[in-house]
Write a protein that binds this DNA or RNA. Sequence first.
DNA 1: TTGTAGGCGTTATCAA
DNA 2: TTGATAACGCCTACAA
Lengths: 344, 344
Amino acid sequence: MGKAASIYDVARESGVSVFTVSAVVNNKSHVGKGLRERVEAAIRKLNYRPNLIARSLANQRTHTIGMIVPDIGNPFFPLVVRGAEDAAQKHGYNLLLCNSDDSLDKEEKAIELLLSKRVDGILLTKAAGDFRPPLRQMIKEVDIPFVLVMRTYPKLTKDAVITDDYHGAYEAVSHLARAGRKRIGLVSGPLKVSNAKERWQGFHDALKAEGLPYEQDLVIEGDYRLESGFRAGHSLFSRRPDGIYVANHLMTIGLLQAAEEMGLRCPEDFGLVSFDDYPWLGIFRPRLTTVELPKHQLGTEAAELLIKRITGDASKPVLRKLQPELRIRESCGFGLRAAEEEKE
Amino acid sequence: MGKAASIYDVARESGVSVFTVSAVVNNKSHVGKGLRERVEAAIRKLNYRPNLIARSLANQRTHTIGMIVPDIGNPFFPLVVRGAEDAAQKHGYNLLLCNSDDSLDKEEKAIELLLSKRVDGILLTKAAGDFRPPLRQMIKEVDIPFVLVMRTYPKLTKDAVITDDYHGAYEAVSHLARAGRKRIGLVSGPLKVSNAKERWQGFHDALKAEGLPYEQDLVIEGDYRLESGFRAGHSLFSRRPDGIYVANHLMTIGLLQAAEEMGLRCPEDFGLVSFDDYPWLGIFRPRLTTVELPKHQLGTEAAELLIKRITGDASKPVLRKLQPELRIRESCGFGLRAAEEEKE
DNA sequence: TTGTAGGCGTTATCAA
DNA sequence: TTGATAACGCCTACAA
């Protein structure tokens, strides 16, 4: 009783061939009613479950998709992953999850493993930097579809589901300007990453459009992690900006920790707009003005697209750009300014 | 060139048998230096990568572990998953991630799929309720190790890595009492879940020890989701408790939303202690007093234990109970009380 | 040390 | 409609 029943056991039990069993399991080619019932009975009796590993080997299809994110511990990604899992699930796929920590090395290892495990496709949030040639070669040979998530990387594929980061950043900075901020700083993600560049560009162009100076000193490149926000805060605040746009949540937390240490208050001492929104940001003070990104949708759309590719859709590459949404609350100091004007 | 090179291709290319190739790939039984080099050259030339699906079929080992959590979108789980992934990774395993939404049905489907995919073991945060007999039967037959995460379920296995929830809740409530709260309410998780029961018990016993009344009206059973915290808040606040212990973060957010709607302030109008801590709770107001749970460690220890089981360790069941840590901040109103006493 | 051949559990081709 | 039988790609006795 140690081994699980195989298709052979079922065949023997019901006195038919494995072909027939296989046919009823996958309800294929019309199997005679009598046989079908006998087989089904045997299946129940032996508690037979197809071995999907064997099936994968025969089919060359695992119904598994690999998903590589920088860090599932970064609160941005869980919802993206959840979205992807929901879509995958719906189409009968599973998710093999990997963390790259934005390291090219880990990313490469993860991809190699996923390829060896013969996943049907990969959802990738590309780490900063370029693939090494051997890996590119390998990927080309294997020829499974990739869909990029949140970050483009045209050298690999043009299929990507991202957010309109340029626009989001532009909105954020314009809003800061509308709130009366004049010296606006930026805590950016790693500029090698496509969306960080986009956000930087949005920041830059919005300043220009508002007639505000772009001060190199007020631009700090972080890595989307909390600590880098903290460090950025320390060096940024010494230059006394009156407004700051921070490119993600984790760095915002770090920045606010730095502000706290330096005795600076938001929005009194500096206005703040942050990227990605969370339920708790609406209730704690200061209420953060943020640019919300549709995380769950990002995941589902990416997975849907990937599955379409897996199942043979070879239509032209799609670059899906989801729209962010500015959520105005208090950290930008908009209310503050209104209050001051009332006094005058 | 459509197909990836197989072990046969390598064998042919280097003029040896598949056995020899297999041996050098897994650097097994001493292969003659000359042959080894020839084989290695062929491997590089053909860019050969072992097909892990085929290997799994032959070995009866997938080096994949299944992980089922209620919802990766609940901020509690990402770090647990990350911990598990780190440990898995370290030992050469991958994580197949599933969400159960605390639904028995989804949980069952997920387990069946994981078993069919022949994962080597499963990390499970059990959904509320009991397995149905056929599933239990199936699990017993397949005989792969399970390790429970965060929630016990002795009917399945006694291997579990959890937190000392009783103790954590006890501490939380005692602290509320020390802060001078007299009518303390509870927003609990689903009482069918082991840790919700533990937290309830800790709540109950702490009240008793402090000589405070246990008021049934002030105990509300939620489901660990935000909305249930919101509803709980609405019904709870109408009874005017002066202290509340909420059993997780998401429900706390919901509860605070309700408080806001009703114009109640924390800690002035009610003291609050919440479970699980996050970096942002230290910087926003009100600063939440929480009981931190070692999420990452939970994941790594669970994965380590599971892998030990997978690799044959049959020592007696381990119930690992990690210690929570009370982080006193301001939402309990402790500072408030101190301030009042000073005035007197 | 190396090769041969059979098995892992399915699917799929080709006859019957 | 069914049944043998050969893939799928790898591992591993058993032989040589």
